[in-house]
Design a protein around this nucleic acid. Structure first.
Lengths: 193, 193, 193, 193
DNA sequence: AATGAATGAGCATTCATTCAT
DNA sequence: TATGAATGAATGCTCATTCAT
């Protein structure tokens, strides 16, 4: 077996890892499965990423950059003259409508941080960046709330299999953006469904 | 080795499974680890739960019942004269302040449904029950939004390690309950946290 | 591949482990090498001995029993009317003259206890038993010294490759048995070589 | 990565190897572990020591020199007017009282020669030098016996965890130095320790 | 001369599952 | 009905060694 000169190998391993998580979930991520997917020898994966944690961190970081680009490319999020609630709802819709394995993949990697300390900093950074971006259109507290809503609705769609309704999402984002109602927190129904 | 008469064995296996997930995460759940934790023979776990999926369904169901009880025991949620936003914020605070492995455990089991079809019905049911409960105080759409916010904020706390701020949470719940502002969705800051 | 019913399997694995250590040294002992030598599936070795330490303890214990039998079968050691020094020298000579891999094997297992805590109790017991046996012919202190000399001379032969000289060994044992010379510890040569 | 000019590198690698053996045992010695401990590139260790055997020989030689110095620095061993038995007992006591990992390390390296032919000449030389030194105070046979006793008692202490008793050791050395008792080899107890 | 990259072999261990009892 | 024994597959990881630079 010839020793291949392959300067991109590290990157290709990360790409393969992401494809593996997309196809089989994090539980299916192993040095072996990645090596097979990337068509490199097993030893090559352990050489570039001594532990699976290292590989997962690289994969999560890369997946995060993908999402960040999607967000950045929606000019509306930073343009003060657009409807932020609508923009967020559209963004989420686009993301959820995209390659479903891609969505599950990124979300699964993100959620994996819950029990894998090595991933926490990357996941936290991801959340922080998005919050900071939204904070340019509103205040920090509201931005944080918007992110929470975004994640929560995403979870609902992915877990219950319910269809994503953009109008509903826009409405919820708008409520959060509207700020606290002065006298309406006793639970009265609050508008159109 | 005497055959033990142990009518509670099935239940004890489920309890052990929950402890194992709490201690080592779902990735650490195996017939063996559960058998050791429950102090029953290995064969006993495979006898009562032929596959790990079956065992995880039982564990998730049981964990969900625990949460449902916590919810139900907060009378406020169904009493039309209380401040629902405050009640929800308090509930979340109480849950997050409890045994941290318990919280992570339940959330991890819940999120596992993302990639394990067998768990989806249980997780969906969990979400549906909570929504239905809240719908008794507001409309269905708002209830669903409240649940999304609840999950999203929970995620933020667990993943970023940020401290839970009950006042902030109550404010966000209140905004969602208040309904859409007539003219405020252009992103203007919306008040204190 | 038929599941074999093999009630002696555990014993055969230990036997194989001893042969492996004899042939390749402790460094060559692995679940795999033992499984191959014993002609059992790999999983069978890990089933009966969950860790290599467990297997090594069993092997050391068995090797020790072999040596103990050799010692016990030399009636002279317990018969008060024989020449103990000569008996010990003969025993050592016999042992060293035997299957050389057997000698190295037992010694190597014994010495492995130096760095493997799990083996220490077994090795200590081995030494204690031999000391106790010899103490029946002399006092405890002398018995302990005899054992030290035995081990030390054994080491010399094995490590330097020097031939074993029974006469020399008997002489040294005799000196230890003779007890402290009243005035002879200034280093004067002490008799025939 | 700059090519470092590091004329002491070879020496530093040997030092690191000794530290590794001290910390993790011979089983933990690898090109990688040594490279990490010495803070040099992996390739550097294989460059200076093509095989692990070469590295172990260098380490054993160096460890032996350390012991030889300790011996030489005890003037008493060569001064014909001192109590040789007491000197040996004190030397052994000092050595055993020193850094325990150092003692285990040197002994482990020494014993490794049992199964590694490459180490045998170095170990044999070590033993020969000590014997030659002691032979200046007594005859060759007695010197060899003293060395055997020294090694044997050392082994007893290290393996059984028994405390070292200098008085006992001195007594045994004295017996060996005293030479064969004329009529005392029938096993009668031979005095207090 | 020196070294980063690479790789195939091997390791201890854990595992879900099967099957004879 | 339970369960101890058994087993083949897989895992993360370490390694000595080689080789292109």
């Amino acid at each position: 077996m010839p020793r291949r000169y392959d300067p991109e190998r590290r990157q290709r391993i990360v790409d393969a890892a992401i494809r593996v998580v997309g196809a089989k979930g994090i539980a299916g991520l192993s040095h072996r499965s990645v090596a097979a997917e990337a068509d490199v020898p097993l030893g090559s994966t352990t050489y570039h990423f001594a532990t699976l944690d290292e590989l997962m961190v690289a994969a999560l970081r890369q997946a995060g950059e993908g999402f960040a680009e999607a967000v950045a490319s929606r000019g509306g999020l930073t343009d003060p003259d657009t409807d932020l609630a609508a923009d967020l709802a559209a963004l989420l819709g686009e993301w959820l409508a995209g390659d479903p394995t891609g969505v599950e993949l990124e979300y699964e990697l993100y959620l994996a941080a819950l029990r894998r300390p090595a991933l926490r900093p990357v996941a936290a950074e991801w959340s922080r960046d998005l919050t900071a971006l939204l904070a340019r259109r509103t205040d920090t507290v509201t931005a944080r709330a918007l992110v929470a809503v975004l994640y929560g609705m995403c979870l609902q769609v992915l877990l219950t299999g319910a269809a994503y309704e953009e109008r509903y999402a826009r409405d919820v984002f708008a409520r959060v953006l509207a700020g606290p109602a002065r006298a309406a927190s006793r639970g009265e129904p609050a508008g159109e469904a």
